[in-house]
Design a binder for these strands. Sequence first.
DNA 1: GCCAACGTTGGC
DNA 2: GCCAACGTTGGC
Length: 152
Amino acid sequence: MAYWLMKSEPDAFSLDDLCSRPDGTEPWDGVRNYQARNMMRDNMKRGDKVFFYHSSCPVPGIAGIAAVVKEGYPDHSAQNPESKYYDPKASPENPRWFMVDVKFERKFPRLIPLSELKAEPSLAEMILLKKGNRLSIMPVQENEWRQILSMV
DNA sequence: GCCAACGTTGGC
DNA sequence: GCCAACGTTGGC
């Protein structure tokens, strides 16, 4: 089992939104970055755990945990001209973009702010904290996962 | 709203 | 294949 971190803007889709979905499940559509796509298409497996990160908000940070419940499949929003995620280069033969389904697992009693993650020496190697990183989906090491859980 | 950092596009 | 221009991300 692997660990991941997925970013979402809470104004658009928050951990609470995920929790209130039927079955607590949501397709992670709209990712239009090849590195992130490849992770969803090739690497994220059913049962993997995900930190749900809130970005572009007053206090960015980790809000809780979700799990991968459906492995990579075509992101059909890319083929829907009505969708804001429409990509004219996507087709049934070449879907181009992929997504996974994630399911709500747990909301932390408090959000773990980015500032605390930055201040924790043992997290110095986290991809999230690397200068210039813009990935919206990234792997998390097991020791990083455990460290962050201890900060909840 | 600013801006650093990075990704993508497209002319050549 | 190079690289300048442009677009996006996301913290601050």
